[in-house]
Design a binder for these strands. Structure first.
Lengths: 414, 414
DNA sequence: AGATTTAATACGCATAGCGGATAAATACAA
DNA sequence: TTGTATTTATCCGCTATGCGTATTAAATCT
């Protein structure tokens, strides 16, 4: 039970101030006071402390000379050099690493196109460790300057415990990846569901800026679901991130009715491969060009391919419609690599959602399709770590990370 | 944006103290201090204020003379007479009203077996108004002593706005039932999904005491879903309570795949009625004895009836399995009137859940079947209102009800 | 240059929670 | 019976917080 003391009070308000500065770029104290509804006095006190700790910096000049009349407002912004963090994204066939500054600007990124799925966890940890060290070094930073690292990966992740319960990446279960990497790198490493990272990124920088409720559905090799609910990342009991692929979309009968068997790239590809067997396309699948081939054939009018994409879209639409019924989010962001952009997939998806969402919720949810750059994962991972550094006091996001009053901030903290 | 000031601090801590007193019966200040992790000094100050406002009272004597040695601890408990509230539950064929005290003990209850579904909203409001006045009068209380009223009803309810978006009770949509009754009765009336009431009741008094995550599924004329997540009632964006019956459990194809078409008593009965047409049982359905007949026939081995109950259980199991995938709750409470207790329904339900919950979540959720008394609705409605009176400051439960610092407490608030 | 206007801060106040000292109320022991 | 030990509850002083008012700072306008 969290007891409310003056310290918590200050933590809450400081977080609000930090959040206002992060969201509204260079911003004056008066504006912060308006946004946060804190008194100018309090804002002044808090920003003074933040300036003292060098978490924020005043903007030199060139301040907007607009209002004209009185004393000009001093604009404040995050100090990009206040801290640096590293974001890592693990996909079955690729490791992406990004080093960012305190504003979540990517300083340096690194992509390793390696198939890591079904590798033993220690091997993966080796690769991640090397990747992180390389990426940090490329950014001309010593490891000591890194204030935190976040690793995103598909599957069921228990962030609080730093444990990956199950993932297409790992053959093992209950991999304590967070603690392992923390020991290896000497920096606090948190792990989270990959979709949660991009959900936070969309919330901070993307299409859902300022939106307190929305869903993110990622369609990649496997399926991911991120939920922002009441301004917070949604997690199940014990902080478990749900695995969207495990949702049932069809009666169990033949072949399993889980979403992952219908709408993931893996399932679609294996279905197409089976359908095209003996037609001379084996090489394409072997080389990882299966999805491109599928989309190409569909565009050429191949009914089997169109049908496969359509059933995938319908199955996903079924699942999303149920989520809309539960969460009533005003926005749903669907994204992925290639398939998610195809009209043969998105069309049936949209139609299914429109048909299945209950009448009372019709038109509340806007469905947005989006293609992500590699960078967004890194920014999301950065955001996840920065959220803690900014001092979110009530976060259900993670455990109370036993750290000093000002976090793992590098440099002299006064 | 809520600004954190000393007042909020006190509100939070006062709520924690009230909550400890409510949960752990007569309790001493020291124990409160232990449970809340507040300093004894603070607990003393807060309890002094609560005593001053007569929200709590010291227990006279007969204190447990156990520890023996030092100064005996003074036990504190809620003052049952600090306030009185009324809970109302609307079902298609019945209105239940209960007057309770500050401890959510039912003082007087009243059941009106009236078919109200499809009556115009003003008529229903008339009936509710009369019922409330009657029940309050029976409890020998003047209306002025009632601090709040909560009405639970099936369907999609937007508690914050006091509006019922859609309900099997109302033929209209967007019924502003809360404001209407508030005007009629001169007492603050809130409305909520009926399942939310019983969810809160289970959390406060029932099988889920102290459990921060669980699901409640009610199987009555229609289906209801209540979710307690992270210790708070779960609501969709805008505070909308989802309607479980709108969840899809089968592909849309023929006849609609919504859960309400498979597993509600209404759907099961209509299916049975169709199956038995011409077999001389019409009277039973006309008189509302359809469910009893169905269960009786199933018990006698009628395969059609057993099959109907089984598909209902399987469909509900499908939906619950998906919820478990999302929320990972340690407990699921299934309840209702008659059908929910039948092994022909619960058996397939359990089997389906066991089969469909992903392996990684197997055995996390315990499925409990429970039959509710009429009283639980009233206690739940009372709890919902008392929650506000106790001063929950962060509640996503409702809007900030513009009221004095001590709520709608009757009597002299010093 | 002085008036005006707006931004930011200094000062004092009220309230919060907490720690140590103190009072209260009982059981135990001589 | 009286004194001591022990546990509970409160009193007092301390620090931290947010806020309101008055004050200073820094620009524009006249």
């Amino acid at each position: 039970m969290k007891t409310a003391d003056p310290e918590l009070m200050r933590a809450i308000n400081r977080f609000h101030v930090m959040d206002a500065i992060r969201r509204f770029g260079p911003i004056s104290r008066v504006e912060i006071s308006q946004f946060t509804e804190l008194s100018p006095t309090t804002v002044s006190a808090i920003t003074a402390a933040l300036l003292d700790d060098r978490l924020i910096i005043p903007i030199q000049e060139g301040a907007l000379r607009d209002a004209g009349r009185g004393r000009p407002r001093v604009m404040l912004r995050l100090n990009p050099e206040a801290a640096f963090v590293v974001g890592v994204k693990l996909a079955p066939d690729q490791i992406t690493v990004a080093t960012t500054n305190f504003c979540a600007d990517v300083l340096q990124s690194l992509t390793l196109p390696i198939r890591i799925d079904r590798q033993p966890a220690p091997v993966i940890a080796d690769l991640v460790e090397d990747g992180v060290r390389q990426c940090v070094s490329d950014a001309r930073l010593p490891m000591a300057k890194i204030a935190g690292i976040c690793v995103g990966l598909p599957g069921i992740v228990e962030r609080a415990a730093g444990v990956c319960r199950q993932s297409p990446i790992f053959s093992e279960r209950d991999v304590n990846f967070g603690a392992d990497l923390t020991k290896r790198l000497g920096v606090a490493v948190s792990i989270d569901s990959d979709v949660n990272l991009v959900t936070l990124a969309e919330h901070w920088f993307g299409q859902a800026r300022g939106l307190n409720d929305f869903l993110v559905v990622s369609v990649e090799h496997s399926l991911g679901l991120g939920i922002l609910h009441n301004g917070e990342l949604f997690r199940g009991a014990n902080g478990l991130s749900p695995d969207f692929g495990d949702v049932m979309v069809r009666p169990p009968g033949s072949g399993g009715g889980r979403l992952s068997a219908w709408a993931s790239e893996a399932s679609v590809l294996s279905e197409v491969e089976a359908a095209l067997r003996g037609s001379g396309h084996e090489a394409a699948f072997r080389d990882g060009r299966g999805m491109a081939l599928l989309l190409q054939l569909a565009a050429a009018g191949d009914q089997r391919c169109i049908g496969i994409l359509a059933s995938a879209g319908e199955a996903l639409g079924f699942a999303i419609a149920n989520l809309i019924t539960l969460f009533a989010p005003p926005k749903v962001i669907v994204a992925g690599r290639a398939m998610a952009a195809s009209a043969f997939f998105i069309g049936p998806l949209r139609e299914t959602i429109a048909a299945l969402v209950p009448a009372s919720l019709a038109d509340v949810a806007e469905i947005v399709v989006r293609e992500w750059s590699d960078g967004i994962w890194g920014r999301g991972a950065a955001a996840m770590t920065l959220r803690d550094l900014y001092g979110a006091p009530w976060g259900t996001t993670g455990p109370a990370p036993n750290r000093g009053p000002l976090g793992l901030i590098t440099g002299d903290s006064h």
